[in-house]
Simulated assay, not measured.
Amino acid sequence: MTQSIRNIYCVGRNYAQHAKELNNEVPTSPFLFSKPTHALVEAKSQSIPLPGHRGTIHYEAEWVVHICRPYQKGMSLEDLIDKMALGIDFTLRDVQSELKKKGQPWLLAKGFPNSAIISKWIDFPGLETCKQTPFSLWKNDQNVQTGNIEEMLFDLPSIIAFTAEHFGLGEGDIIYTGTPSGVGPVADQDKFVLKWGEASLAEFTVDLQSSRVGKN
């Protein structure tokens, strides 16, 4: 399905504790940014290269939804969303900090190749069912992030409506809905596992290419 993705929308600061852990203001309306499709890669137990020569990289685990038809006001979520997944929004944190200071867009920090990890897609069971299941990220067999979509500052209907109004929303678009607290740095050969409840949806190993790229 990664071949048919059109737009990758990401919701920033959608969990209050995550905003606070990075000393960011808690937003009062949805805050969105995007990633290019070149950023998207499905985790299939492989080694995934990341640019270790550009400063610290942080992991941010997220619940992701897939849009299956053009948005029309009043549509139910079940008519609009057919699949869901888990993902990681990898962020060049040092780069992002400098961009924030300059008041510049975050694309350099958020849009690099392989910065949007996605698990396999599973059927969307409905919003109320999803609220009953936590998602988690495991790094080297340790649980580093756990979240539940009930904790989101802006719920899925609000995110959908805001995205459609300001950017448009159609078949093949996906939305990363924000990360809970617990984000942290990535090291070479870290192994990550994304879990929906007790079920593992994706795993991969990081190949941090600091010694082989950009040091000529």
Rank of each mutant, 00 (worst) to 15 (best):
D82K: 02
D82H: 10
D82P: 03
K83N: 12
K83Y: 07
K83A: 06
M84W: 06
A85F: 10
A85Y: 00
A85K: 05
A85Q: 03
A85G: 11
L86M: 02
G87L: 00
I88L: 13
I88M: 14
D89A: 14
D89P: 07
F90W: 12
F90I: 00
L92H: 03
R93V: 10
R93M: 03
D94N: 05
V95N: 05
V95A: 10
Q96K: 08
Q96Y: 06
Q96R: 01
S97P: 00
S97H: 12
S97A: 15
L99H: 01
K100Q: 10
K100E: 08
K101Q: 12
K101G: 09
K102R: 15
K102D: 03
K102S: 11
K102P: 01
G103R: 03
P105A: 11
W106T: 02
W106N: 03
W106D: 08
L107E: 14
L107N: 13
L107P: 08
L107I: 09
L108Y: 13
L108F: 09
L108H: 10
A109D: 06
A109R: 11
K110L: 03
K110S: 01
K110E: 00
K110V: 02
G111Q: 07
G111R: 06
F112E: 02
F112D: 01
F112Y: 12
F112W: 08
P113H: 00
N114C: 12
N114R: 08
N114E: 08
N114K: 07
S115C: 12
S115E: 04
S115Q: 03
S115L: 00
S115I: 02
A116T: 01
I117H: 02
I118N: 01
I118P: 08
I118A: 05
S119I: 01
S119G: 08
S119V: 04
K120R: 13
K120N: 15
K120F: 11
K120Q: 15
K120L: 13
W121C: 12
W121P: 00
I122M: 07
I122S: 12
I122E: 11
D123N: 14
D123A: 14
D123I: 14
F124R: 09
F124Q: 04
F124T: 04
P125Q: 09
P125A: 08
G126Q: 13
L127C: 02
L127I: 03
E128A: 13
E128C: 10
E128I: 09
E128M: 12
T129F: 14
T129Q: 15
T129S: 15
T129V: 15
C130W: 11
K131R: 14
K131E: 15
K131C: 08
